[in-house]
Amino acid sequence: MEGKIIRITYETIKKNLKTTLVLSLIFMGMAAMYSSFYPSFEGSLEELMKNFPELGFIRGFESFASYPGFLNAELYQIFWILILAIIFGYVAASLISEEIEGKTMDMLLSNPIPRYRIVLEKFFGLIPLVLIVNFATMASVYGITLAINEELNFVNLLTTHVLSIPYFLAIISLGVLVSTIIDKKMKASMVVMAIVIGSYIFESVSLLAPDYEKLGLISLTHYYNPAESLIEGNIDFNGTITLVITTISFLLLAMIYFERRDIEI
């Protein structure tokens, strides 16, 4: 039984090796590109801030003229917390749904493996994807920073990437939950993508409109702000704890639902 459990995690990791490699290369390249852009734009960033005050919904935009602020606005506040989260959610939403849709779930269920363990091990199988893409991107940012001789606190950079792990795991656990509910792979992925985008929009609206400030509280994006750690060197313990609790809650719901639901084999 335990060997089969390990096999599920191993197969999930193996299946996503290509995705891991491609995403790592893409985000390493994007990180290198934006890092190397800063010297060319450094002199015009102050003026750009004055001309586009509407970009105030970008957290940390007031520090846009600095190197960490530039990276925060150009890389982390959009491509990191939105685009990469959408991709992770898309991948996670197919973990269970594709097995059901492809009629391969019966092979797993025919073994003496509790259903909840299938869900849990599928989730564990995506953790290497998150870690490798995460720290490969961090290495690219820091390497280019040294190459162009700019100042960036390494501890702040490391903290920013470490704190992103609970955020991405919350996104993945959401994808796993939706994957246990919706049998169609593409439909499940689209639902998760819509939720992630909606979460980002809710947080942006809460920043732009004071009357809707509390709207951000229902957004996962609200609980991870790269600007706080990258620019200011602060750690949002409450936000991180909230994301950890959210991840555990989504996983528990996914395991309970999948344990009890009927599956046509």
Rank of each mutant, 00 (worst) to 15 (best):
Met1Asn: 02
Gly3His: 15
Lys4Gly: 05
Ile5Asn: 15
Ile6Asp: 06
Ile6Tyr: 13
Ile8Thr: 10
Glu11Val: 03
Glu11Gln: 13
Thr12Asp: 08
Lys14Gly: 00
Lys15Glu: 15
Thr20Trp: 06
Leu21Ser: 01
Val22Leu: 10
Leu23Gln: 07
Ile26Glu: 05
Met30Phe: 11
Ala31Ile: 07
Ser35Met: 10
Tyr38Gly: 01
Ser40Asp: 12
Glu42Asp: 07
Glu42Gly: 06
Ser44Phe: 09
Met49Ile: 13
Phe52Pro: 05
Phe57Tyr: 13
Ile58Cys: 00
Ile58Leu: 10
Gly60Pro: 00
Phe61Cys: 02
Glu62Cys: 06
Ser63Cys: 08
Tyr67Ile: 05
Gly69Glu: 03
Leu71Arg: 07
Ala73Trp: 11
Tyr76Asp: 03
Gln77Val: 08
Leu82Ile: 14
Leu84Asp: 06
Ala85Gln: 06
Phe88Ser: 14
Phe88Trp: 14
Phe88Asn: 14
Gly89Leu: 01
Tyr90Gln: 15
Val91Glu: 01
Ser94Phe: 11
Leu95Ser: 15
Leu95Trp: 02
Leu95Arg: 08
Ile96His: 09
Ile100His: 07
Glu101Thr: 03
Glu101Trp: 00
Gly102Tyr: 10
Gly102Glu: 15
Lys103Pro: 04
Thr104Cys: 08
Met105Trp: 03
Leu108His: 07
Ser110Trp: 09
Pro112Val: 06
Pro114Ile: 05
Pro114Gln: 12
Val119Glu: 07
Phe124Tyr: 10
Phe124Trp: 02
Gly125Ser: 10
Gly125Thr: 05
Gly125Val: 04
Pro128Cys: 11
Ile132Leu: 14
Asn134Arg: 08
Asn134Phe: 01
Asn134Asp: 08
Thr137Ser: 13
Met138Gly: 00
Ala139Ser: 13
Gly143Tyr: 06
Gly143Arg: 00
Ile144Arg: 13
Thr145Gln: 02
Ile148Pro: 06
Asn149Val: 13
Glu150Ile: 00
Glu151Gln: 15
Leu152Gln: 02
Leu152Lys: 03
Asn153Lys: 01
Val155Asn: 09
Leu157Met: 02
Leu158Thr: 05
Leu158Val: 13
Thr160Ser: 05
His161Glu: 12
His161Pro: 06
Val162Asp: 00
Ile165Arg: 13
Tyr167His: 05
Leu169Asn: 07
Leu169Trp: 04
Ile172Glu: 13
Leu174Ser: 11
Val176Glu: 04
Leu177Thr: 02
Val178Asp: 12
Thr180Trp: 01
Asp183Gly: 09
Lys185Met: 03
Met186Ala: 11
Met186Ser: 14
Lys187Gly: 02
Ser189Glu: 11
Ser189Phe: 04
Val191Asn: 03
Val192Gly: 01
Ala194Tyr: 08
Ile195Leu: 04
Val196Lys: 01
Val196Trp: 00
Ser199Tyr: 05
Ile201Phe: 09
Glu203Asn: 15
Ser206Trp: 12
Ser206Tyr: 12
Leu207Thr: 13
Pro210Gln: 14
Pro210Asn: 10
Asp211His: 13
Lys214Phe: 09
Lys214Asp: 11
Leu215Ser: 08
Leu220Cys: 14
His222Lys: 15
Asn225Tyr: 01
Ile231Ala: 00
Glu232Asp: 11
Asn234Gln: 14
Ile241Asp: 05
Thr247His: 06
Thr247Pro: 04
Ser249Asn: 01
Leu251Ser: 07
Leu252Ala: 06
Leu253Arg: 01
Ala254Asp: 03
Met255Glu: 00
Met255Ile: 07
Ile256Val: 13
Arg260Ala: 05
Arg261Phe: 00
Asp262Asn: 09
Asp262Pro: 07
Ile265Ala: 11
